[in-house]
Amino acid sequence: MQLLKDGGYHTVSFDQIFDFVEKGTPLPEKPVCLTFDDGYLSNYEIAYPLLKEYGMKATFFAIGATVGNTEHYKDTEFPITPHYSYEQAKEMSDSGLVSIQSHTFDMHQWAPYEPGDRVRNNILRWKDETEEEYTEALTADFSKSREELEAATGKPVNVLAYPGGQFDALSESVLRSLGVKATLTIQPGKAKLTEGEPECLYLMNRFYVQPDTTEEAFLEWIS
């Protein structure tokens, strides 16, 4: 965040991105969209205070089934990396700096902790699942994710980050039919926004910042 500030970059929300693409509303100079996946409590305890300190915006993508899980994975006895609660999500959303969007409700499961072999590691269709069955499953999952997040924050949920970056033509078709306005992959690269072309909002690329990402590499990505 200090690098962004020093470089004259400005963080933007998806609402600003939508306004640019749909209405031609100008974005600030050198725009950057910060995203955080999975809904970890560290988003609330570490990232959110830094966003407030720097006056920056970000979008957090929550997995509905693990919201508020701080000790155990869902209803099991398996340990989990703590996740923020809906109350904490609302606090962050109310700040105007954070948008809480969907990382599915329960299509980012951790196989070793799930019973049986019907596990959804990601949003993709099972090999033995018909298109109709899959469409019904994804519709139910995203609808529940959106319903719970909107109830918590009072804000629209219309962006989805694909778990593990996995997607296909059917997942895209279903999500678009449900009113999702943007989808995100983890394929490296800059998102290319074009005024008047909503298609550019789908399968948006992202750079994956990791603990070993150097400042030089980061600056090269965004320059």
Rank of each mutant, 00 (worst) to 15 (best):
D212M: 04
C200Y: 02
T153N: 10
S85A: 07
G24A: 10
T185Y: 11
M56L: 08
F61E: 02
P79L: 05
A89D: 05
F78G: 07
D19F: 01
I123A: 14
F14T: 12
L203G: 07
E216I: 06
E131W: 06
E216G: 09
E133N: 01
F36K: 00
D15Q: 15
H10N: 15
Y73R: 02
P163E: 09
D117I: 06
L41T: 05
K127F: 05
P82D: 11
E77Y: 13
K190N: 04
R125I: 14
F167H: 02
D212G: 04
Y48L: 08
G8N: 14
S173T: 15
A65R: 09
K181C: 06
K190R: 14
Y54M: 00
L175A: 10
Y162Q: 02
I123N: 14
G164V: 02
C200V: 14
P31C: 11
P156I: 01
E150H: 13
K192L: 13
N158I: 02
L193W: 08
D168Y: 10
F105S: 01
C33R: 06
R206T: 13
G8F: 05
G116Y: 12
Q2V: 00
R125L: 14
Q2F: 04
K5D: 02
M1R: 03
L50D: 03
T214V: 05
S102C: 12
V157E: 13
E129N: 07
T139K: 10
L97N: 00
T183W: 11
D19A: 08
D141P: 12
L27K: 09
K90Y: 08
